[in-house]
Design a protein around this nucleic acid. Structure first.
Lengths: 178, 178
DNA sequence: TTCATTTATTAACAATTGTTATCGTGGCCC
DNA sequence: GGGCCACGATAACAATTGTTAATAAATGAA
């Protein structure tokens, strides 16, 4: 999560980003569509989710100062496996794929920054996976409480439940006995 | 999993790899140690696992023609979060970090190959995570049967059980009712 | 404010999994 | 071959989770 941070002067490219105000529950990218934009959260929070047997499955949350995209779709041009949606009313900076790529054409150290980001995300998911096979839902909830209290504080419980791989009923019971 | 494959002529660098014969159940990297070597499987299979409350938690399997390392440890020099161990008697090609890096110094397109690999692995873990929150253990087992029959065929069941996030007793019951 | 919708809690019952222990088989090393 | 150990199946019981439904509280829009 905390690799040697590469400092990037995004200000220099602020003209390539477009600021957007989005209400709560606004879809920024639809599951099945091709991702053509990347987002940076100035204020608010977003979630990644996909539909499974008619149910919302949320599998990641993003807050202020984080970049969000459907990495694979943005990169390969294939349909996204999930949707990107705002939870709170949010302010995001939007950048087109073309402009995004132009930054890296000009500037190799920005490319290195992306590699860093990908490594960190790989690390994030592999640790998440490891925590799933070693911990019970209750233990994962306690882990969240300890390491990501912001998620508990700002995110509706039924989203957290699916992130933990359980039903909202079960999460409610867990909270009751913790 | 199947992005546009970059062709790499590893033969050219075969002198930097050292061939090793390893018996079954041989540790190639110990959890907590710093990874100084990368491995390529010529024959056999390996697993990644970590210890949790005295129990073996296996979270990935590798077979012929796959590269294996503790990515994060190899990259950052921090202790590995898991062990690398052979399951079957195996033949592996071993390369030191120094030699590995020298290939990329000489050759930028090899670096691109690594980025590809990291992207694919990110994709692998994120899909795995998604399958965990959307499927029951039984569904995940059926998915394995369908998409990775080799795992079912070659890997001892108690390793598969922990990979599925359940006990070997529960896996035995699932197999009984499928 | 009012009303509809979303969100969270609780209950009851079914289904699944965890835990512990026992047993049988097969492989492997001496 | 003999003996040890790894592996898998099964049983019994406890604990947890899923499912469905009803209810209450909070939120948001008109």
């Amino acid at each position: 999560m905390n690799a040697p941070e590469i400092k990037i002067d995004w200000e220099k490219y602020s003209h390539l980003f477009k600021e957007m105000e989005v209400p709560a529950k606004t879809i920024l990218l639809n599951e099945g569509d091709v991702s053509r934009y990347g987002y940076f959260i100035k204020k608010g929070c977003l979630r990644l989710w996909f539909s499974n047997k008619g149910k919302d499955m949320t599998f990641q949350f993003f807050f202020e100062n984080e970049g969000v995209s459907s990495v694979e779709s943005f990169r390969t041009g294939e349909p996204s496996l999930f949707s990107i949606e705002s939870i709170e009313p949010s302010t995001v900076l939007k950048i087109s794929k073309k402009n995004f790529e132009s930054i890296f054409m000009e500037n190799p150290e920005y490319r290195e920054f992306i590699n860093e980001t990908i490594f960190r995300r790989l690390n994030f998911y592999s640790k998440l996976f490891m925590s799933y096979i070693k911990n019970t839902p209750e233990e994962r909830y306690k882990e969240l409480l300890k390491n990501n209290p912001e998620i508990i504080r700002r995110i509706p419980q039924h989203y957290i439940a699916s992130f933990l791989g359980i039903t909202s009923v079960s999460l409610s019971r867990i909270r009751n006995r913790v």
